[in-house]
Amino acid sequence: MTAKNQRLVLVLLALAAVVAAALLAMSALRDQAAFFYAPSDVRRSGLPLGRDVRLGGMVEAGSIARAHDGVTVRFTVTDGQATTPVTFAGIVPDLFRERSGVVAEGRFQPDGRFVATNLLAKHDEKYMPPELAGKMHETRTLKQ
């Protein structure tokens, strides 16, 4: 083996090792690096009480209810396996709507409810023109 070939093998091995180390670290950090708890995470590992956390998932269809004071919103976050009721008082982001993603920042209550101090909208990776997304979305977008 010439010196050049030896170097080539060594450098490529180093590159592969670096990338593999990154991938291993990523999968090991999966829980710590998560941006939010999903409702089923909370059901599995218990309520993270007494500290600010984020709760993420989809806003369940038909679950958004506004209280009479005009600023309090109640809705249910679901990840398909479990649900969490959320209360939030304040201005919701434009993209906050049913069947769409949401990340709520706040605290869990001992009874399992989540009181949010801030809401972030999370949209998915599907982009399409209004006429494709159906009549309901079309009217909403045009009204804005």
Partner: peptide, 19 residues
């Protein structure tokens, strides 16, 4: 280059705000 797969798979393996 360790960062490149992290960026690429961050939205697949971790739950993120980014879609």
């Amino acid at each position: 280059s360790a960062l490149l797969p992290v960026i690429r798979y961050s939205v697949v393996w971790w739950n993120t705000l980014h879609q």
